[in-house]
Design a protein around this nucleic acid. Sequence first.
DNA 1: ACAGAATGCAAACAAATGTTCCATGTTTTC
DNA 2: GAAAACATGGAACATTTGTTTGCATTCTGT
Lengths: 202, 202
Amino acid sequence: MIKHDKLMEVFEYIRRYNDDNGFPPSVRDICAALNIKSTATAYDYINRLRDQGYLDKSSKKNRSVVVRGSSVVRAPLLGVVNAGQPILAVENNEGYYSLPEAEFKGDDLFLLRVHGESMIDAGIYDGDKIIVKRQENAENGEIVIAMFDDGTMDGATVKRFYKRDGKIVLHPENSTMEDIIPENQESVRILGKVIGLMRSFR
Amino acid sequence: MIKHDKLMEVFEYIRRYNDDNGFPPSVRDICAALNIKSTATAYDYINRLRDQGYLDKSSKKNRSVVVRGSSVVRAPLLGVVNAGQPILAVENNEGYYSLPEAEFKGDDLFLLRVHGESMIDAGIYDGDKIIVKRQENAENGEIVIAMFDDGTMDGATVKRFYKRDGKIVLHPENSTMEDIIPENQESVRILGKVIGLMRSFR
DNA sequence: ACAGAATGCAAACAAATGTTCCATGTTTTC
DNA sequence: GAAAACATGGAACATTTGTTTGCATTCTGT
């Protein structure tokens, strides 16, 4: 696989520098750290790494080497789902999270903290942070964030989405709970589709 | 809360630039994007944002403004747990993931893809990626990655760790499975403690 | 041993970029 | 309304940084 020669040392350093500092190293940073005597040498390493597909690099721009495939998407944590009306107001923004793009692709993502047990049989637990892709429609069987315009429920909920006999059915993945078939079907609004989750143990 | 004036526009731009490009903007990038006529103005904005705690910035270094609190930790995906011997060999590295530091703190993290249902009652499902903090000891009740030196089992497993009557007990969170109490207790090696997980739905 | 490629170095150059100083207009304060 | 504080701009300056060029050294295959 990858030979661990000087070229890879440079690569590792660039990666580590970026992790530690939040921005890429300059050519001279690399020289200093790896005991390279000439900027031309380090410059050459960078170009070779780019040619081999390890790096991306904008010409002439300072400190613009980025490790390829390490991209992240950022998503705001908008609040707690199933308590209040957390989603629409940007004011409820509780901070941004960087997620690995390899895992969670998508343009318009946001996070919600899950409250309650209504999806426990789908492996979504109380306290989990779910990753939601903002969209207004859903396919049968997808897990969605749904909201009711007419105020019959308190804010948004996570449920599995079905369309049965032309009617929207919101199915909680919890054997102790009943399906919700909203009387006023037009009032149901899909805010997004759940594409993943994160959990951290205490 | 945060007033959405020009200062915040600059802040948002820096954040977005970084998300899009992987490295921070220069003062002149900010000028061009937000129609600011003088670099001194943008420079001033940056310094004010730093003073108010929104940014970090290394003096004199080019493109070194970073949004505070947006830090990530990087962890390699080392393989599949519970199938083979994936962990020790660096060759099994399947790529690095950037995780939000706010969620997964720690020095020495790595990821494993979970195979099997042995922890399903703890909400860890087949296919999940678990985040593991490398350490050799564990406290009662923690979920760990355990390995057997003597080859009695095939590689590493995820289990809940207990010490009962001085003996290590590895408890699968699955009612259909039995606790494992290794005969040769010395052969048990803890590789790390599970601190979180990620899941993406298909 | 030899040519040629690859590697590394030193030095210089050019461009990108951070930083400073001062002037001008705008808002706030008393 | 005057003074002070603030916001913005123009221009220059200083530093950092990417890039090029030419030369020495080492490696490689014949």
